[in-house]
C-alpha cells in the first residue's frame, strides 16, 4: 500500500459519523463534571484531556499494537508472493486476537469502561465488513486475485465478529481497532496515532455536547493542545507491549513495558458514571 492509499484510508477513518466518532462515550468526562472536578481548574476540558490521554495510551496502546501485529502478519501471508496463508493461519490469528481480548478484559475492571469498549469494538468490526468491503455492484470490474485477498481478510474479521456475537470473545475496542486498521493496510505508527487522536477528539466532542465548550473552541484545542499531548504519548507508549506476543526468551519487562492504569481518580469517576441522576452519555 502506498502513502496515498494510506492517507485516503486515514481520511475515511477520521469521519466523525463512524463509530469512531463520539456519540455515546464521554470516557468519564460527564461524570467528572457532575462530581464537581471542573471547579478545580480554569480550563477543565484541557486538564481532563491531559489526565485521560496518558492513562488511555498506557492501558490501550499495547493492545492496539499487538492486535495490529497479529492481523498485519496474516495480511502479509494473504498478500504474499505465494498468495497462500499457511495451514491454520486464519485460526491462529483469530485465536491470538481472542487471547488479547481476554487479557484486556481482565485488565479493564471498571464496568462502565468495559461496556463502552465492547460496544465500540463490535461496531468497528461491522464497519469493516459493511463500510470497507467492495460494493457488489463493482465486483465484476475487479480481478479475481484482489477479490480473493479481500475475502480472506473478511474471513478473519467477520469470523471474529461472529465470535463476539456468540459471546465467545469480548470484542474490545483496542483489539478491534488494531485489527481493523491492519486489515485496511494502515501502518502500526499511524494506527497508534489515530487511536489516540480519536480518543482525544471524542473527549472534545463530548465537551461540546455537554456544553462545556463551543465547536470552534474544541477545534482550537484539537489543533493547539491535543497535538503536542498526542505526540508526547505516542512517543512514550509506542513500544509498549501486552507481553502476550513476546517470543519465549524475549526480554519483556512488565513493570516498564506493560499496560497500566496511570490515573486512579479517572477510574473511580468513570466507574461512577451510572450513578448520575441525569446523564446524556453511555459512559
Amino acid at each position: 500500500m502506498n502513502d496515498g492509499d494510506e492517507t485516503y484510508i486515514m481520511l475515511l477513518l477520521t469521519d466523525s459519523n463512524l463509530p469512531t466518532g463520539s456519540f455515546v462515550a464521554s470516557s468519564g468526562l460527564e461524570s467528572s463534571i457532575a462530581h464537581g472536578f471542573s471547579s478545580l481548574t480554569p480550563s477543565p476540558l484541557v486538564t481532563f484531556i491531559q489526565d485521560s490521554l496518558p492513562t488511555y495510551a498506557r492501558s490501550t496502546l499495547p493492545f492496539v499494537s499487538d492486535a495490529h501485529r497479529v492481523v498485519a502478519r496474516y495480511k502479509e501471508e494473504v498478500e504474499g508472493s505465494e498468495g497462500n496463508v499457511k495451514a491454520g493461519g486464519l485460526e491462529e490469528a483469530s485465536r491470538q486476537l481472542a487471547e488479547l481480548d481476554e487479557l484486556y478484559d481482565t485488565m479493564t475492571l471498571n464496568h462502565v469502561a468495559k461496556r463502552a469498549s465492547k460496544a465500540q469494538g463490535v461496531a468497528l468490526l461491522t464497519l469493516f465488513s459493511k463500510g470497507f468491503s467492495q460494493p457488489p455492484s463493482l465486483a465484476a470490474y475487479t480481478d479475481a486475485e484482489s477479490r480473493d485477498k479481500e475475502s480472506k481478510m473478511r474471513e478473519l474479521l467477520d469470523g471474529y465478529k461472529f465470535k463476539v456475537r456468540r459471546e465467545d470473545v469480548q470484542g474490545h475496542l483496542p483489539i478491534c481497532w488494531g485489527a481493523l486498521a491492519a486489515a485496511l493496510g494502515l501502518k502500526l505508527e499511524r494506527t497508534q496515532y489515530l487511536h489516540l487522536f480519536l480518543h482525544a477528539r471524542s473527549l472534545l466532542s463530548a465537551g461540546v455536547r455537554l456544553n462545556n465548550i463551543g465547536p470552534y473552541g474544541a477545534q482550537q484545542l484539537l489543533l493547539h493542545a491535543v497535538r503536542p499531548l498526542l505526540e508526547a504519548e505516542v512517543t512514550k507508549c509506542k513500544d509498549l507491549q501486552t507481553g502476550f506476543l513476546v517470543v519465549p526468551g524475549g526480554n519483556f519487562n512488565e513493570p516498564t513495558q506493560g499496560p497500566a492504569n496511570t490515573w486512579p481518580l479517572g477510574e473511580i469517576l468513570s466507574s461512577r458514571h451510572d450513578l448520575q441522576h441525569s446523564r446524556i452519555f453511555n459512559s
Binding site: 481548574t41 480554569p42 480550563s43 484541557v46 486538564t47 491531559q50 489526565d51 498506557r58 487479557l103 481482565t106 485488565m107 475492571l109 493547539h224 493542545a225 503536542p228 499531548l229 505526540e231 508526547a232 512514550k236 513493570p255 506493560g258 499496560p259 497500566a260 492504569n261 496511570t262 486512579p264
Partner: peptide
C-alpha cells in the same frame, strides 16, 4: 485469571510547551 489490576504512578514528564503544567 479473573483480575489483573495494574496501577502505575510516575513523576510527571515535563508538560509539552503551550499547555498548563500538570
Amino acid at each position: 485469571r479473573i483480575i489483573k489490576d495494574v496501577t502505575l504512578l510516575e513523576k510527571h514528564d515535563p508538560t509539552p510547551a503551550g499547555l498548563p503544567p500538570r
